[in-house]
Nucleic acid binder design. Sequence first.
RNA 1: GCCCGGGUGGUGUAGUGGCCCAUCAUACAACCCUGUCACGGUUGUGACGCGGGUUCAAAUCCCGCCUCGGGCGCCA
Length: 434
Amino acid sequence: MESRTRTADATPGETVTVAGWVHEIRDLGGIAFVIVRDNSGKIQVKFEKDEMDEDLVETGLNVQRESVVTVTGAVEEEERAPTGVEIVPEEMEVLSAADPELPLDPSGKVDAELPTRLDNRTLDLRKDEVKAIFEIRAEMLRSVREAFRNLDCTEINTPKIVATGTEGGTELFPITYFGEEAFMNQSPQLFKQLMVGSGLERVFEIGPIFRAEEHNTPRHLNEATSIDFESAFIDESGAMDACEEIVVSAYEGVAENAQDALEALGMEDEFTVPERDFPRLTYQEAIERINATGELDEQLVWGDDLPTEGERALGDDVGQHYFITEWPSEIKPFYIKDNDDDEELSTGFDLMHPRLELVSGGQREHRHDHLIEGFEQQGLDPEAFEYYTKMFRYGMPPHAGWGLGGERLVMTMLGLDNIREAVLFPRDRQRLSP
RNA sequence: GCCCGGGUGGUGUAGUGGCCCAUCAUACAACCCUGUCACGGUUGUGACGCGGGUUCAAAUCCCGCCUCGGGCGCCA
């Protein structure tokens, strides 16, 4: 098995051993074909019943689909074979027989619904178009890491078991930590801020976040992957520049290095890298444009959060990625700094894909006294966050950053209808296993 | 959290009170077929989420439960 040849590498003239899954069996009578699939592709194995060893034919044609087998034989050029080559077997071994009743059909002749697919994710991922999503996700992560390094960021890892939430209370998963109350981390927000006050100055983290919201939508997860950025000595405008750079790099990486996966999804032609210089609309402009579309029954007024329907109307209107800036301070969290000239306005921004919010960020409040005030205004007890606020007394530089939803990036990039498609084993309101 | 809509063989479906011993595809089993590439053909196997109710008669109507999906809110 160590010396197995990947099916894609089988060259006519060689004798090879391939290993993989039985994708399909086609018995035409005197001749039969077994298609073996591995990660690299598929190859046809030919069985000519009258001319071959009986035991070999018996093994080859009685195997169940999706069983794991090895086949040893000569590779021959054959234009009638699907890939132009086929194997004439000398030996075949069944390493792991599959049950004949499969919970879904990996060859894709019959569709399965998403819950069925997620319950049987291992089999689901044997389909090229499903596997391709995760190849693209991996390439997205790789190119994002590389882009962060090019921006002089240091990759960090912060705790996922924490004593307090980012914004206080209710939407956290409580756990018991040696008899003490603790929570699963909702965001690395406070920790990454502490790091810009450290000697690292500019950091990024790619890691899980946990939210106990009982939402049931195609765009929310209870465990998601957050791509976070935070840097000292930049303002919200600099943070938006970095955000644009990372998002564009993610697309560029996929376009350059994941062509096969895009083809498996039938997207090789339509996949395009977003144009740089994403428009930056102020919140005020955003609500005016939404109101002007006439899509909403009620006009939005200053201070309203943008309803989903409004986001979509604006997304259709703008037609590309765009930022919304200068949100009202009152609907942004305490760690977002207010605008110096108008404290009704915040430095918070969101990056929107036409159909979905991708990023939330802003310049942070780095002044200790303002920070404590902010806690109090939001009804939070600064004492509970002392580990955080304390460090603002020992030299905290002005800083800004953002968090990007990793699954949402994959989802919007590939036009997936459901965010669960972008996670191997999604955690949602109804699903804790597998 | 609020509001909708579903659950029929292994998978995906048709079927709004008897006419349909539940349709079709795929899978599985058996047989036929020497070049398939969604191979083809014949025959067969296999299901109405659970519990209760209405009715001469329930997959179909009503109630409860379980379970799944969607919309909104909130967010990434």
